[in-house]
Amino acid sequence: MSDATPAEAAPGDGDGAGMAAAEEVHGAPVTWSCGQQVLHPTREQYLDVVKALKDEGFNFCVDLTVVDYLAHPARRLPAGVGPERLELVVNLLSFEGRRRTRLRVQVPAGDPVVASLFRLYPGTEAMEREAFDMMGVRFEGHPDLTRILMPEDWEGHPLRKDYSVGRVPVQFKHPPETR
């Protein structure tokens, strides 16, 4: 599984549709978005794929975030990948290969649990806490999964689509005395 190598050069830009999921990297279907390689492992494959990618030279975890697709369920995914409400997005970077790759993992909202990348990339510690705080995805194996940005006693996960923006209506108040 780990001997599979990804396509060396990005194919032509613009095939954002990426429905041609003939390619696979470490068992995960590959699409291309704006010339960027995107892997779609399942939740079960996720940790193994990241491990294989790390062995392959992706030594730097740039970013980890979650997208809530509640209001936009019909997004483009390769054949065989069933859309779920939440999607974990991990951006990896290889210093040697000077290239990036991105993983998109489908996470059902009913059971939002994913393996933590902490043992592979300790730098994901804060990012996973942020994802938990903002989106309510739990990371198994994370050493300290607590709220990071919101107060500890906050209710709800603000970046979810069903969480209101929390607008406060603008009140017009007359000045205390007229001038």
């Binding site: 107060p151 006693d153 209710e155 709800g156 969480y163 209101s164 929390g166 607008r167 406060v168 209506p169 009140q171 205390p176």
Partner: peptide
């Protein structure tokens, strides 16, 4: 506080308003 929506003002804040 008016219009907090789903939110709550932190209960431990002693909230005051100028006139």
């Amino acid at each position: 506080l008016p219009g907090r929506g789903v939110l709550h003002a932190p209960s431990h804040v002693a909230v005051g308003r100028p006139h």
